[in-house]
């Protein structure tokens, strides 16, 4: 992390000081609304209901009880293992842009006073791509949860495996999946919330391995990128393709949960399992 970034708040236009009176324009309906108003509305446009993307830390705040979250492995940073061209710069840019060390935040917290392990991915860090450290952090969280018999709550957003780390990042899929299996075999609960977009190697591993799979309305959820599919198909894609609503119809999502009821829904599920 760069020195000065320690003193700065995240630079998402919706983050920063709570007294922020700035306005933000919704990309869908072009209406400008005060940041405070959008925040109170769970980062959903008050005019058209479009979903703004939510940073990982904010997600955790939105889902856990006040002041209950304790972060794990916050200091783990990626290195350019393969000496991949431009990766060093990409990493430092991502750190500066996101004010985070990596694309996932993990830790323990409470939801309705029930202790849980929770991880949230951050689309502001190289599109939430999974490299060795993202894989390592999530694996450690599952191992911790297995040891302590705690449920895991996940919030995924990712473009897939991080190509700058080559096969090491691809094999994180195997590593995390194996840790999820151990956690599950020990009788523990794993709830995952799929958010826009969850694709590629993350979709083809831990995002699809939860006991209970929730999704945000309208989220793009799939394995292959839509452009790649369109190219193979040689025709326009069907409407709603890879959208959460369609993925639910296809049988891969348990429930679509709007933002304002996500915490209470997860809490209800946890309570039934506790």
């Amino acid at each position: 992390m760069k020195f000065n970034s320690l003193f700065l708040k995240a630079n998402n236009e919706l983050e920063g000081s709570p007294r922020n009176t700035r306005k933000v324009t919704c990309k869908k309906c072009n209406t400008a609304n005060a940041v405070s108003k959008i925040r109170k509305n769970y980062f959903v446009c008050p005019e058209c209901g479009a979903y703004f993307s939510v940073r990982a830390r904010r997600r955790i705040l939105m889902l856990t009880d006040k002041r209950s979250f304790i972060e794990h492995d916050a200091g783990l940073c990626s290195r350019n293992i393969l000496n991949f061209p431009e990766y060093d710069k990409k990493l430092s840019d991502a750190m500066e842009r996101s004010r985070e060390n990596e694309g996932v935040i993990c830790g323990v917290g409470e939801i309705g006073k029930i202790k849980v392990c929770i991880f949230a991915m951050d689309s502001y860090f190289m599109m939430g791509s999974m490299g060795a450290i993202v894989g390592e952090k999530i694996t450690r969280l599952f191992e911790f949860a297995t040891k302590k018999s705690l449920p895991v709550i996940g919030v995924t957003v990712s473009g897939g495996a991080r190509m700058q780390e080559g096969m090491i990042s691809l094999m994180q899929m195997s590593k995390v999946s194996a840790a999820v299996k151990k956690h599950s075999d020990a009788g523990n609960l794993y709830i995952n919330l799929l958010t826009n977009p969850t694709t590629g190697g993350v979709m083809a591993s831990f995002a699809m391995l939860s006991d209970i799979t929730l999704a945000e309305p309208g989220a793009r959820l799939g394995f292959a990128g839509p452009r790649v599919v369109e190219k193979t198909l040689n025709a326009p894609l069907p409407k709603n393709f890879q959208r959460a609503e369609r993925v639910l119809e296809c049988g891969f999502v348990d429930k679509i949960v709007p933002r304002n009821v996500q915490k209470e829904t997860i809490e209800k599920i946890l309570r039934i399992h506790s």
């Binding site: 995002a207 699809m208 799939g222 394995f223 069907p238």
Partner: peptide, 12 residues
Amino acid sequence: CGVDAEERGQGR
């Protein structure tokens, strides 16, 4: 990579 493959859960 196809619509059917996606809808039958390639990722899963």
